[in-house]
Design a protein around this nucleic acid. Structure first.
Lengths: 192, 192
DNA sequence: CACATTCTGAATCATTTGTTTCAAAATGCG
DNA sequence: CGCATTTTGAAACAAATGATTCAGAATGTG
């Protein structure tokens, strides 16, 4: 009976995500968003909701993209340690090539303390990466690529913290070698 | 001849810093600030300047406080490794006790990419901590508290990145043991 | 086709934003 | 004291903010 929604919602969310990603939640205005999404604010409020709701949809979208990336990596037929090393190296490339940082990390520091919904999404996302890493490390230990004296859970937490720190380091110092050296050292420690 | 400034400027900066620290730059309004500082906005614009200038003064104040803390630690008559371990343990306590995170880290992610002045202050602050850590690690190596096979500069970068990551981890997971375990592991690796 | 229903666009809303104005109050110096 | 000078407080500014309104356009179903 009715008229259908004219705009591609996922595409619009993608556009909105990019703006939030760059400017942060508080730094982004409704005009910024509707401009990027190429829709009118009435359409936004009609289909998605207010700014907060849109933001929730955006980080959810972001974490889904990350999740798909991890799934893809797991399916690789490289060895566990190789997958792990590839993951770290890709992270380093990402950190040191794009000016913008990781949206999950930025959001954690900007709004996670005030918005429980956001915090919960980020928590699930973190646990997801955690499981991904634990899985790989455990497999690598079983295949004797990593020493069985290592603690997989600790190592996973360790790496995740390190990655976050690398983002900040690169924002402030813009020193790619710094990051590469740390990554190389971490991989070296891992591989013996 | 003239009337004197009535309010304590350093006290006012301290108040403003606390608000910025909690709410971030974009999340803080001029009213938030003048309320906390207990001054009128005309006084603010008369003595300090606009919001940006005030923010610069605030992180500058923040990094000065940090600097003083490092100076104090250096003067301790404990051994280099002991000072280092104390520093890490204090950081862990700070991270896992206060709800709010480190202002320098939050600011790096929120505004450092857009504001060169801010980025420069944070960079100097980072280099300061870096020197502090390198000094301690080098001394510890000379006193044979740390193996001379370690790379001091790398270790310093490593620790700084880790600390940043711990802040994010605690915001998202609120798991103090996670942080404590990582710290313990790091200290353990250091001490042999 | 025709109609009921939904979506869209432009305009507009009330607040809030960062900032400024200016008269009145305060203060040091002669 | 009295004047010149500066700070203060309340009010107000224009612009931007998040959000809503509503007439008209669009569309699937009968």
């Amino acid at each position: 009976m009715p008229r259908n929604v004219a705009f591609n919602e996922e595409q619009a969310i993608q556009y909105a995500m990019e703006v939030f990603w760059e400017k942060g939640y508080n730094g982004t205005s409704l005009r910024d968003l509707t401009d990027a999404m190429k829709i009118n604010s009435s359409s936004l409020y009609n289909t998605i909701g207010d700014k907060q709701e849109l933001f929730v949809r955006c980080i959810r979208h972001y974490t889904e993209l990350r999740n798909k990336d991890l799934q893809r990596r797991i399916k690789s037929n490289a060895s566990p340690l190789q997958i792990l090393i590839q993951y770290i190296n890709d992270a380093v490339t990402l950190i040191t090539s794009k000016a913008n940082s990781c949206m999950a990390v930025k959001t954690a520091f900007e709004v996670a303390n005030k918005d429980v919904r956001i915090k919960e999404i980020l928590k699930l996302d973190g646990e997801n990466t955690y499981r991904f890493l634990c899985l790989l490390i455990n497999s690598a230990i079983r295949q004797k690529e990593i020493s069985d004296t290592e603690n997989p859970e600790l190592l996973a937490d360790y790496l995740m913290s390190m990655l976050t720190g690398w983002y900040e380091s690169y924002i402030v110092h813009k020193d790619a070698d710094k990051i590469r050296n740390m990554a190389q050292y971490f991989i070296h420690q891992l591989s013996k």
